[in-house]
Simulated scan of single mutants.
Amino acid sequence: MSATVVNLRQARKQKARETKAQSGAENRRKFGRTKTEKSQEEAETALQTIRFEGHKLTSASPSQKSDKE
């Protein structure tokens, strides 16, 4: 009878490490984006804002209306 001796403390710690690694992998899949992806999205948002602001019609502000009266 040759049985493998297992240190329970080490086995418990190894299981905790594997669980933590698995939850970390799930979080990276859900929330992780590279710096390049984040900066690309930020640049696209800025460009959309600029284009939107460029298409706005200008109207007289309240201070300009009171000057004309």
Score class of each variant (00 low, 15 high):
55 H>M: 08
31 F>A: 07
60 A>I: 01
57 L>I: 11
59 S>E: 06
30 K>I: 12
48 Q>G: 08
55 H>L: 09
15 K>P: 05
8 L>M: 13
45 T>M: 05
44 E>F: 14
48 Q>A: 08
36 T>P: 13
29 R>W: 01
66 S>K: 03
29 R>E: 07
42 E>Q: 06
66 S>Y: 01
16 A>T: 14
10 Q>A: 14
8 L>F: 08
8 L>I: 14
12 R>F: 15
68 K>T: 02
11 A>S: 15
58 T>C: 08
42 E>I: 13
17 R>T: 05
43 A>C: 04
33 R>K: 15
65 K>M: 09
56 K>M: 09
63 S>I: 14
59 S>T: 13
62 P>G: 10
37 E>C: 05
67 D>C: 08
34 T>G: 12
35 K>S: 14
57 L>V: 04
14 Q>W: 02
13 K>T: 09
33 R>Q: 07
33 R>A: 10
52 F>E: 15
54 G>Q: 07
15 K>S: 14
16 A>R: 14
5 V>T: 07
34 T>F: 04
27 N>W: 02
53 E>T: 09
12 R>E: 09
9 R>Y: 12
31 F>M: 01
50 I>L: 09
18 E>H: 00
24 G>K: 00
16 A>D: 12
43 A>P: 03
66 S>W: 03
32 G>I: 01
49 T>P: 05
50 I>Q: 10
34 T>H: 05
50 I>K: 06
49 T>Y: 13
39 S>L: 15
28 R>D: 04
65 K>W: 11
25 A>T: 00
63 S>L: 05
42 E>S: 10
67 D>V: 03
66 S>Q: 06
46 A>W: 06
64 Q>P: 00
28 R>M: 08
42 E>A: 05
29 R>F: 02
29 R>G: 01
60 A>E: 05
12 R>D: 15
31 F>D: 10
53 E>P: 01
54 G>C: 04
53 E>D: 12
62 P>Q: 08
47 L>P: 14
43 A>R: 12
22 Q>T: 01
62 P>E: 07
39 S>P: 13
13 K>M: 07
61 S>C: 13
35 K>N: 15
24 G>H: 00
68 K>A: 02
2 S>L: 15
11 A>G: 06
58 T>P: 13
66 S>R: 04
52 F>D: 08
67 D>L: 07
57 L>P: 06
46 A>K: 11
51 R>Y: 04
12 R>I: 12
7 N>P: 01
22 Q>R: 00
66 S>L: 02
18 E>D: 03
61 S>I: 03
12 R>V: 12
58 T>G: 09
19 T>V: 13
28 R>K: 11
34 T>M: 15
21 A>R: 01
